[in-house]
Design a protein around this nucleic acid. Sequence first.
DNA 1: GACATCTGTTAGCGGTCGTTAACGTGAGCT
DNA 2: AGCTCACGTTAACGACCGCTAACAGATGTC
Lengths: 209, 209
Amino acid sequence: MTRQPTAAEAAPSGQPKPTRREQILAAAAELFALRGFHGVGIDDIGSAVGISGPGLYRHFRSKDAMLGEMLVAISEKLLAGGLRRVELADAPAEALTELVRWHVDFALDNQALITVHERDLANLAEDDRRRVRALQRQYVEVWVEVIREVVPATDEPTARAAAHAVFGLLNSTPHSKHLDRDAMAVLLHRMALAALTGPGALTGLTTSA
Amino acid sequence: MTRQPTAAEAAPSGQPKPTRREQILAAAAELFALRGFHGVGIDDIGSAVGISGPGLYRHFRSKDAMLGEMLVAISEKLLAGGLRRVELADAPAEALTELVRWHVDFALDNQALITVHERDLANLAEDDRRRVRALQRQYVEVWVEVIREVVPATDEPTARAAAHAVFGLLNSTPHSKHLDRDAMAVLLHRMALAALTGPGALTGLTTSA
DNA sequence: GACATCTGTTAGCGGTCGTTAACGTGAGCT
DNA sequence: AGCTCACGTTAACGACCGCTAACAGATGTC
């Protein structure tokens, strides 16, 4: 029976120490993003971190556990960051721009995880999938509330759909490497805000004739 | 050696006849979208169309051939439709709205294929992947040209990145079923146009200080 | 110096999956 | 009536893959 330090002692002192587990997760994320969960073998992940094959089982219970851990972690981080930005904002409009900025930075700095997140969710084990779905819902909810404050005449389903659409826009990062990071960040930020706050973009859809 | 009618005699008379091949491709697309290419077995696809397992090999050379055929077909259709809309338009602004309308309708009517298209491209065989990539590039090119006509001060890399971002926005359809089809179409249309033509969204990124 | 523990190795099992082989059947043509 | 051919069936093969078993070195501790 192998020891399984689940996120509790993953960061005992602080952040300076990149654990073996974290190295493995990072490498696995990169490979999963490239070829998909089922397209990557245990041996591939192993050799990506210098060890070979079954040595990974000293650090993880199973291949599914790796996927689960990294998707739960990223979902938690995304939600926590979003909540914090909204809390720190003074006005709704500022909350929205901060939310956009947060998501843009996050997407640009975690392209592999973003890709895996929206592609291999179906390959998660039941438990992990429920947790991730719940976190996703909460994150969407944060956006929905802020959107409805900034664009008052928006009903809830529309706001939800708009949030998903903006996520699609912002998460498009992995598909285009034509601009450097900063230019990309500015572009995505502006496009997202324009899509949400453009004149009448979100209103008059469900109550109109 | 089995006969392989490759798209030539797929539609000999017109469109009224849904071939067995097409039934299979549609079912396979649905399953691929749900669980990913590697997550779906030959037997799953077979039983989805009433036959079981290896019977599919009377219609397709291999499982990869199914994926290849459906992704090439969808890419060709997308490009052809885009080109036609632009040709029929009188002015650049109209070309852009028509392009958006075309892509919105396409995404809403082919959600499974859209999902597979952006998820399992990596699982294609070399030949097919090259063809699909080439078609994708041409489609992006259509958008880039139209965007640069409508928003004159936009440089090419920015236009390309913006096009990808809009694709991400429009292809978000499969992730949100909160609105009915028509409302969704209107919402996506407005958001896409706002993102592209919003005040200064695409300008001043590469030449600014 | 004996011991435990952490981390890694190689060999092999068990199941899954794509594909092929061999065979059956019913419709249509001559 | 008989031949062909399109369309299925089941059985089985071969490869791959996740995972376990058994073993080994390096390190720190009493």
